Amino acid sequence: MPRFMGFVRMEEGIGTPPQALFDAMDVFIGERAASGVFLDGGGLYGTEDAVNFVSSRGEVTQHDGPYAESKEIVGGWSLMKYDTVEDAVADQRRFAEHWPEVTVVATLRQVSDGPDAPGD
């Protein structure tokens, strides 16, 4: 059964989403957890405590947050499994429909289980 990672990207510094959104997400995720689709996931704090390590030509540099140049950040993630890619895409669309109060980008990517990429 293919696994997928979902990301929610949003504008940095918009504050806490409304409680109604948290309530709707609890129901949505709870239904998927009960059916075995939702494997794990969670929200992420802002970039104020983030640390990036950049490796370039064998040299590693560390960059601590916050990142003033960040306009959009990953605010949450999930790991899910579906019977088909089509099922995953349809459910990700339903997920995106739960965000009417804020602007987000909900991204879905298939998890690789080996050296071959999907479609190879």
Rank of each mutant, 00 (worst) to 15 (best):
W99F: 15
R57V: 03
V85L: 12
R93M: 10
A96C: 03
S35M: 04
D113E: 14
G30P: 07
G30Y: 07
A106V: 15
T61P: 02
L108N: 07
V105M: 03
E86G: 09
V37H: 13
D87P: 04
V37Q: 14
T61S: 15
M1S: 10
L79M: 14
V89I: 15
V60L: 13
D23M: 03
G58P: 09
G13A: 09
A34T: 12
M10A: 06
G30S: 10
V8C: 09
D83C: 00
K81R: 15
D91K: 08
M10S: 06
P18L: 11
E86C: 03
T47D: 15
I29K: 05
V89L: 13
V104T: 10
L79I: 14
F7M: 14
V54W: 05
R93T: 10
F53W: 11
V37E: 14
D23F: 04
D87V: 06
V54A: 10
A106F: 07
A96I: 03
A24P: 02
F7A: 07
E101S: 14
G36P: 08
A96V: 02
G15I: 05
F4Q: 08
V37N: 12
A24C: 02
V105G: 03
I73G: 01
R32L: 13
G75F: 05
L44M: 13
E12Y: 05
Q110D: 01
G58R: 11
D49K: 14
F28C: 07
W77H: 11
T84V: 08
M25T: 01
V104Y: 05
S35T: 12
P118M: 08
L39W: 05
T61V: 15
F22S: 13
Q19W: 01
G46S: 13
D113G: 13
L39N: 08
G43K: 03
F4P: 06
A68P: 06
G15Q: 08
P66W: 04
D91T: 10
P118N: 08
I14R: 15
F28Q: 07
D120P: 01
